[in-house]
Amino acid sequence: MTQGATQLSLSQGLAIQRRVINAIILREVRTRFGRHQLGYLWAFAESLFWILTFAGLHYAMGGSPPVGMDMLGFLATGIITFIMFRSTVTHCQASIVGNRPLLYFPQVRPVDIALGRALLEAATLIAVFVGLLGANALLIGEFDVDAPLVVLAGLSAAWLLGFGLGMCLMALSIYFPVTDQLVPILLRPMFFVSGLFFAANDLPTELRDYLLYNPLLHAVELVRDGWFVGYHSHHVDLQYLAGWILALVYLGLLLERFARRRVELA
C-alpha cells in the first residue's frame, strides 16, 4: 500500500473502512437532513414532484400506461429508479467538494466518502420507493408484487451504475474541473431515453435496438418486470447490464486511486 497507512491485515483494514464509512454516513445525515424538522421528507419531495407533474401531463394528454401497469406506478417505478441513478452519480461526483477537510485524516479516502454518500442515497431512495409505491398500492388497491427481489436487483443495478459513473466523474473532475459543469448537461438526455415514459416492449423495433444500448433502460425494465404482476419485459439483458456495472465500477475505483494523490488539501 503506497498510501502508507500503518501496515494492516485485510481484516483490520476493512474494520477501519467500515468505521470511517459509518462515521461519514452519520455525518451526512446531519449535514443533509439534520437542519430541518422535516429534513427527511425533502427526499420524498423530489420524486413525488416529478411523478405528479408527469402524471398530470399524461392525464391531460389522454395517454395511457403500458399494458399491465397503472399510470402512477408506471411513472414512479421509472422516475425513482432514474433518481437512484442520477442522485448517486451527483453525490459521488461531489464527494470531495465540501468534504475536503475530511481527507485530512489519513484513514479517510475519497472512495470512503463516495461510498458513504452513495449508501445513504441508496437507503433513502429505497425508502422513497417503498413509501411512494406503497401509498400508490393503497390508492389503487393492488398489493401483489410480482418478484420483490427482482425489483431490488433493478434498483441495485441503477445504484451500481450511478456509483461507478460517479466515481469516474469524481476522479476526472480532479484532473479536469470542467467535468462538473458538463455532467448535468450530459445526464439530461438520460431522463428521456431510460424508459421513464415508455416501456421497451411498446417501442418500434429499430428505435428499441438503439435505446437498449443504454444500460439504465435495462435497470428500469428490471424494476418494472419485478414490480408489476401484469408486465413482463422481453428485453432485459442481464449480462449486458452486469458488463456495464463491472466496467464502470472497476474504472471508477481505478481512477480514484490515481486521483486520490492529486487532491489538493487546504
Binding site: I16, R19, N22, A23, I24, R27, L102, F105, Q107
Partner: peptide, 9 residues
C-alpha cells in the same frame, strides 16, 4: 468531535 472520535474508533 463525534466524527473524529468515530473514525479513530
Amino acid at each position: 468531535m463525534r466524527f473524529v472520535s468515530r473514525i479513530y474508533g
